[in-house]
């Protein structure tokens, strides 16, 4: 509880400083997660290992050997963190970027459709939000659908879009990007409508006393006040966009991209490959969100909105 935290007497321990902020606790929690991961890997992989021993006629393998063996299986139920790390290193640093086995190559494919879809979706969302804010009819008729469409599992139509577009000869980047567009445009629309409406009544009145045109009010008041909302919804949008790109790679039999790595990994039981694709996707998502966070900080600072 906050009160206890605030009134706790300063401790003398040399680690006290480390544990005060967020960095220390986060590191400890990450370490704990990795420890649990190792433990789970041993426990989940042990039954298979015991089977192997039985078949190999090895009677009483010492515990240390059992642990070591469970952590170095070829197709473990749960690969150990270091196995995933090694695979990641192998498929990024040790392979040519153009190789089909390079994770950078697959990540790049996913990234390109993510970005294309994200840019289109954001532009579409901003444009739609501007229309909605200025048209009473669109506001009353379109917005309820935009909002309720968020409750619909949009990803469910991903395979259909891909297959149908393939059937009429559109393949490659564009169908996947369309799914990303679709997923990222909703949060941006909703966020921007909120943002464009965020100026207080008194500020809109001020514009009216100058008899400013709607376009002037948009440029000078609505858009600047919507900036924080735009960045917040862009963070959600880019994450959704990546999910869209990955899911968009699933149904075509998947030749390239992180989604394809997931799918082929699951076909052939290559758990290490699945996990490394998963980690790569996570890193990609975190990087994209962080980049938007940096852009947000810069933009808001330049606008003087951040103190």
């Amino acid at each position: 509880m906050t009160i206890e935290a605030l009134t706790a007497p300063p401790s003398r321990s040399p680690f006290a400083g480390l544990m005060q902020g967020t960095a220390g606790p986060v590191l400890v929690v990450v370490a704990a997660i990795i420890a649990v991961w190792y433990l789970a890997a041993v426990m989940l992989n042990a039954p298979f290992q015991r089977d192997m021993y039985k078949r190999g006629g090895i009677e009483d393998a010492p515990l240390a050997q059992l642990v070591a063996d469970t952590l170095s299986q070829d197709r473990p139920v749960l690969p150990a963190p270091h196995q995933v790390a090694v695979e990641l290193w192998d498929t990024t640093a040790n392979k040519a970027v153009t190789s089909k086995r390079s994770l950078v190559y697959h990540g790049g494919i996913t990234l390109s459709s993510t970005l294309l879809g994200f840019v289109l979706g954001t532009a579409l969302g901003i444009g739609l939000a501007i229309l909605v804010v200025h048209s009473r009819v669109l506001d009353k008729s379109l917005m309820p659908w935009v909002i309720s469409s968020q409750t619909i599992p949009i990803l469910a139509i991903a395979p259909m879009i891909i297959v149908v577009l393939n059937a009429i000869g559109i393949s490659g980047l564009l169908p996947k990007a369309m799914i990303s567009t679709y997923l990222s445009f909703f949060p941006v629309t909703v966020g921007m409508v909120k943002g464009l409406r965020s100026p207080e009544a008194i500020q809109m009145d001020l514009m009216k006393t100058y008899s400013a045109s709607p376009a002037q009010a948009l440029w000078k008041l609505r858009l600047p006040s919507a900036m924080p909302y735009l960045f917040a919804s862009m963070k959600v949008g880019v994450a959704a966009s990546l999910v869209g790109a990955i899911v968009g790679e699933l149904p075509t039999g998947a030749v390239a991209g992180l989604g394809a790595r997931l799918l082929s990994g699951s076909y052939y039981g290559q758990t290490v490959q699945i996990w490394s694709a998963l980690i790569a996707a996570a890193v990609l998502a975190a990087t994209l969100v962080a980049l938007i966070g940096v852009a947000e900080r810069l933009a808001l600072k330049r606008m003087g909105m951040r103190r």
């Binding site: 990803l155 963070k235 959600v236 994450a239 990546l242 999910v243 990955i246 899911v247 992180l258 997931l262 799918l263 990994g265 699951s266 699945i274 694709a277 998963l278 996707a281 996570a282 998502a285 975190a286 969100v289």
Partner: peptide, 9 residues
């Protein structure tokens, strides 16, 4: 913010 859906396989 991560594509958790990837744990599906």
């Amino acid at each position: 913010a991560l594509p958790i859906i990837g744990v599906a396989p």
